[in-house]
């Protein structure tokens, strides 16, 4: 079964992500793909994340296809105009890539080429429309394609954005533009996430809750202070602080596993997306702890 078939059949799906390296040595990324491929339903490949130049997500996704697993191609609008995006999408389709995650992309000022010209010819909502159109056999200008794509397209949402309403309005636009599934920004407050899900359940889309494992109380404070849309509740920070020396990471993994279990048991959402950020080797253990 493909990722799309699994999620449509109401299986609780699990996705994780790999970040292609800066440079041509792909030993680590191949190792991570091997490690995760049997354990998750699909693997996101980030697109020059944080605007730091790396191997493109298209090539990274092809490595996953070659390894016999299913990639979710992340595509941002920062580096390519509408011609480049559509061309890469057609290329992705012929390389066997079935899933695409449409994002606007971090601004170049966040990355390692700060003098670059940011593109943003189109943005996430319009990119979803483009994918929908390619699936129907037409390019953005309405020209007929020799062979349509068949992408399962998704988008991202930040359930803890402040203020929330403009973000929810954008979520509605993304649904209207053709998003089938959403992966959320990292969530830590289950009560707030359940509130968001009451809203999201009104729409015919699948939601995967995003998780970033807390390695320490310091990391939690960092996320709260510097990462937009992430709010780690004080009780979790206290839990990490109370962990015996050397066990904070273990505690962080237990928190993630506990949250995943809770969402699964209470059928709150349709799956989870684990963003390991350098801890790809820990993902199997987290899934095991969550009973997945």
């Amino acid at each position: 079964m493909t990722f799309a078939e699994k999620i449509r059949s109401n299986k609780f799906v699990v996705t994780a992500e790999v970040g292609p390296p800066k440079g041509t040595n792909i030993k680590d990324v191949l190792h991570h793909i091997e490690l995760l491929k049997g354990k998750v339903d699909a693997l996101n490949v980030t697109d020059n994340q944080s605007a730091v130049m790396r191997i493109c997500s298209l090539a990274g996704s092809k490595l996953i296809v070659d390894a016999g697993a299913e990639p979710i191609l992340q595509m941002t609008c920062r580096d390519r105009n509408r011609i480049g995006l559509q061309s890469d999408l057609l290329g992705a389709a012929i390389l066997g890539i079935k899933n695409v995650l449409c994002m606007t992309g971090d601004h170049v000022s966040a990355g390692d080429h700060k003098n670059a010209k940011p593109v943003y010819d189109v943005e996430s909502v319009q990119l979803l429309q483009i994918v929908d159109s390619l699936n129907k056999g037409r390019d953005m200008s309405g020209n007929e394609l020799q062979g349509a794509t068949d992408f399962f397209q998704g988008a991202v949402v930040t359930p803890e954005a402040n203020p929330l309403e403009p973000q929810l309005m954008k979520f509605e636009k993304k649904v209207k533009a053709g998003a089938n599934f959403f992966q959320t920004q990292a969530i830590y407050d289950m009560a707030k996430f359940k509130e968001f899900m009451k809203f999201a359940r009104k729409y015919p889309v699948k939601i995967l809750a995003g998780f970033v494992v807390l390695k320490s109380a310091g990391m939690a404070n960092f996320l709260n202070n510097f990462v937009p849309g992430i709010k780690v509740p004080q009780e979790l920070i206290d839990e990490l602080k109370a962990a015996p020396k050397g066990t904070a990471l273990e505690t962080g993994m237990n928190i993630t596993a506990r949250h995943i279990r809770e969402l699964m048991d209470e059928k709150i959402c349709d799956g989870v997306h684990i963003m390991a950020i350098g801890m790809e080797d820990k993902v199997p253990l987290i899934l095991q702890k969550a009973g997945l």
């Binding site: 996430s124 636009k173 920004q185």
Partner: peptide
């Protein structure tokens, strides 16, 4: 800065 036409990006922080 991104010239977005359909709402705030995920980077919006406390408005």
């Amino acid at each position: 800065p991104k010239g977005l036409l359909n709402g705030p990006c995920g980077g919006m922080s406390d408005g």
